[in-house]
Design a protein around this nucleic acid. Structure first.
Ligand SMILES: Nc1nc2c(ncn2[C@H]2C[C@H](O)[C@@H](COP(=O)(O)OP(=O)(O)OP(=O)(O)O)O2)c(=O)[nH]1
Ligand SMILES: [Mn+2]
Ligand SMILES: [Mn+2]
Length: 534
DNA sequence: TGGACGTGCCAC
DNA sequence: AAACGTGGCACGTCCA
């Protein structure tokens, strides 16, 4: 690990060397945990995690050239020291230690000036820098997994998949690879001769996407079997099979890796495994989610911002109607669901509300009538009418959309209310399709990015609160899922901590509408009961 | 054999 | 599939 201490003493440490020796190790602890000794480096999250594995909690991170580069240009693919240095100075960094450290030093000076110039220093110092060791800790702590539950689920789905395969081959009259869209299309449209109109994919092949197959389900019983097969196969190959091998056999816990520089908007991403896309919707998905469990004597508590990006766009656009709705405590997702599905608000199911989310955010971020139709199932006329009325009712939001496009075109970038930026070169293209696409990106980023800023700030505040008041044996933050934080808390503290953490999250930053947080608590990540405000 | 690409689908 | 956006990941196919 290459680190510059106190802007002077330049050190590169081989981990093996440092931790092989008892004395060096205790010296290292003193050095790294001294917040008065300022550290400069490239990618401190990785370093912080290595140190945590040796019982050291790093403090005094002054500057991280990787995070600085990310704030200055969030759409870079790769934030390698070499790449960043080359972009900055048009030269390569040699492999030797001295070169790496002087590269970091030079980058720090140069990037610091640019951050200051672009008003990004506060985001770096108050948000990204303090967040990085927190993410390292969350990765290090991991989440407890019930392997038995996954095992049982595995047997069940395996059996079902086998049976489905048999039935599908029988209908098809031959065996083929159901997972191959090409072979599947051949069976459906050539062998079985299905006549239902199906869209072409981008490259011109007949689409076998679920939305298309659903339209054929009346025409042949094989369709429903294929859809079920897809659902089970997805669960099996993406979740059930890979997860057990990723569990730490000593602790039974599963550790993700967060990427703090992986999105153009400021969101985090999660990989190996991705714990931000654990199934939640279907019955089967919920069964898998049930495998994420609290330690003995602990509870999982989930804190999820209510309608987060709608509240943010209400604030950014200063939309009177939307602001009023939130001040009255309305649920706009539920309202949309009631309207689209033509039921009263109290008859809106979870599934209907999730579909309404797609519509509300879809329209906000530029969904057309066709897209709305597909997502909602309503007629062309009703789709068109809904979008028109949405823009009419929330005229402030409509104005925001227009103004943001203009501003993006004029400045070449858009930004969140805290100044995080996304460059949008594509908006100056000559290709209409690329312009439209860039426009939609422009509308989305300030909202999604502000949401990311807010939850990052909340994470820092909540983490500080928890560490100042409790030990790791009492409460720990496990996961972030974009607008949700998942904690593992000693059962007897759950009630009180729920209130404290909710308060911190709801008051993280005052905007023109209330921010509210839904709190749920349970033994696993699936069966959770709501905790009320008091 | 392995990487790039296309298709598809999970979450927010 | 597309005039919603942001991701990660698995599989099949094609090609070097
Ligand atoms: N563009 C887009 N953004 C989405 C979509 N689904 C979720 N998001 C974004 C906007 C949401 O505010 C944010 C958090 O997702 P949630 O599932 O928690 O929804 P939300 O907070 O809006 O409603 P909630 O009250 O928590 O059920 O993620 C989507 O389908 N499209
Ligand atoms: Mn939410
Ligand atoms: Mn959420």
């Amino acid at each position: 690990m290459d680190i510059i201490f106190n802007d002077q003493k330049v050190v590169s440490i081989s981990t093996e060397k440092m931790f092989g020796d008892k004395e060096l190790r205790s010296n290292a602890k003193v050095l790294f945990e001294n917040s008065g000794i300022l550290k400069i480096g490239h990618g401190f999250k990785r370093i912080a995690k290595i140190l945590l594995e040796r019982g050291i909690h790093i403090k005094g991170i002054e500057f991280d050239t990787e995070l600085a580069a990310y704030l200055l240009n969030s759409d870079l693919q790769d934030f390698d020291l070499n790449k960043i240095y080359f972009i900055e100075f048009g030269d390569n960094v040699s492999f030797d230690v001295k070169s790496r450290l002087s590269a970091i030093s030079a980058l720090k000076k140069s990037l610091w000036e640019k951050l200051k110039l672009n008003g990004l220093l506060k985001l770096l110092e108050d948000v990204e820098l303090p967040l990085s060791p927190i993410l390292a800790e969350m990765e290090f702590v991991g989440i407890n997994v019930n392997q038995k539950n996954i095992e049982i689920l595995s047997k069940k789905t395996e059996e079902q998949i086998k049976n489905l395969e048999k039935d599908i081959y029988k209908f098809a009259g031959e065996e083929f690879n159901i997972s191959s869209p090409q072979q599947l299309a051949h069976i459906l449209f050539t062998v079985l001769g299905l006549k239902g109109k199906v869209r072409k994919t981008g490259k011109g092949a007949l689409s076998t996407a679920a939305a298309e197959l659903e339209k054929l389900s009346e025409e042949h019983p094989i369709i429903d079997l294929i859809l079920k097969y897809r659902e089970l196969q997805k669960l099996k190959t993406t979740y059930i099979e890979p997860f057990p091998s990723l569990i730490d056999s000593k602790t039974g816990r599963l550790h993700t890796t967060y990427n703090q520089t992986g999105t153009t908007t400021g969101r985090l991403s999660s990989q190996n495994p991705n714990l931000q896309n654990i199934p939640a919707r279907t019955e089967l998905g919920q069964e898998f989610r049930r495998s994420f469990v609290a330690d003995k004597g602990f509870q999982l508590i989930s804190f999820d911002y209510s309608q987060l990006e709608l509240r943010i766009v209400a604030h950014i656009s200063n939309d009177e109607k939307m602001m009023e709705a939130f001040k009255r405590g309305e649920d706009i997702h539920t309202r949309t669901a009631a309207e689209i599905f033509e039921v009263s608000a109290d008859k809106v199911t979870k599934s209907m509300r999730r579909d309404a989310k797609t519509l509300n955010f879809g329209v906000l971020y530029g969904m057309g009538q066709m897209g709305f139709q597909r997502a909602s199932g309503v007629t062309r006329e009703r789709a068109k009418e809904f979008i028109r009325k949405y823009m009419e009712e929330f005229s402030g939001v409509a104005a925001y959309m227009e103004q943001t496009k203009q501003s993006a075109y004029q400045k070449g970038y858009v930004s969140t209310i805290f100044g995080r930026r996304r460059k949008l070169e594509g908006i100056k293209s000559n290709i209409p399709e690329l312009i439209r696409q860039a426009e939609r990106m422009a509308i989305n980023m300030p909202v999604q990015g502000t949401a990311a800023d807010l939850i990052k700030m909340a994470m820092v505040k909540v983490h500080n609160f928890v560490h100042e008041n409790l030990s790791h044996e009492e409460a720990r933050m496990l996961l972030q899922v974009h607008d949700e934080l998942l904690f593992e808390v000693r059962a007897d503290l759950a009630q009180k901590l729920s209130k404290d953490i909710r308060d911190i999250m709801e008051n993280v930053f005052k905007i023109s509408v209330p921010l509210t947080v839904d709190v749920k608590c349970g033994d696993n990540w699936s069966d959770m009961r709501s905790l009320s405000v008091n």
